[in-house]
């Protein structure tokens, strides 16, 4: 009789533990199990990736459509080569679209924003976006500002 109750408690304990795991996975990390969507990869080269990191989001009009897969150095051009995974259902990105490294808020994380072009041809797996705009680096901005201010005087 006593051991039945112990078994009940142990069962409840294990279930609560698993529920905590699921809660953390779904609610806290936002992991969606149906989210294993098909993706295709595109690349872009930037002069300065300025703090962009793996898994940063890729957006169109602020809507999340993919994420950065890897960031490496293109040794021939000395540029940052960013590979990103784009959701397969977003298959209508014109090849002449432009991409920029943006910052959410003043000090927030870096992400990629796509601006749609006008070409009839669409990007496919392995495609590249050539029109890139690098990250705004605060130091560069300030020095430009100071330089200009000095000029006008």
């Amino acid at each position: 009789m006593r051991s039945k109750r112990i078994e009940l408690f142990v069962g409840a304990f294990i279930v609560v533990g698993i529920m905590a795991f699921v809660y953390l996975a779904v609610q806290v990390s936002g992991l969606a199990f149906s989210d294993k969507k098909d993706t295709y990869q595109i690349v872009a080269r930037f002069d300065d990736i300025g703090g962009l990191s793996n898994r940063a989001k890729v957006t169109i009009a602020g809507v999340n459509i993919g994420s950065v897969e890897s960031i490496t150095l293109d040794k021939d051009l000395y540029m940052g080569l960013v590979t990103m995974n784009i959701d397969s259902d977003v298959d209508n990105i014109p090849t002449d679209s432009s991409i920029a490294i943006l910052t959410s808020g003043l000090l927030g994380e870096k992400y990629l924003g796509l601006s749609i072009g006008a070409d009839d041809e669409m990007l496919t797996d392995g495609g590249e976006i050539f029109d890139t705009q690098s990250a705004l680096v605060l130091e560069t901005l300030i020095s430009q500002f100071l330089f200009k201010a000095g000029d006008s005087e």
Binding site: F13, I14, V16, G17, I18, M19, A20, F21, Y23, L24, V28
Partner: peptide, 15 residues
């Protein structure tokens, strides 16, 4: 078995 489960429960109640 217990400690990892307890740790998950701890994090969840903390949040």
């Amino acid at each position: 078995i217990c400690l990892p489960l307890l740790s998950l429960i701890f994090s969840a109640t903390g949040i």
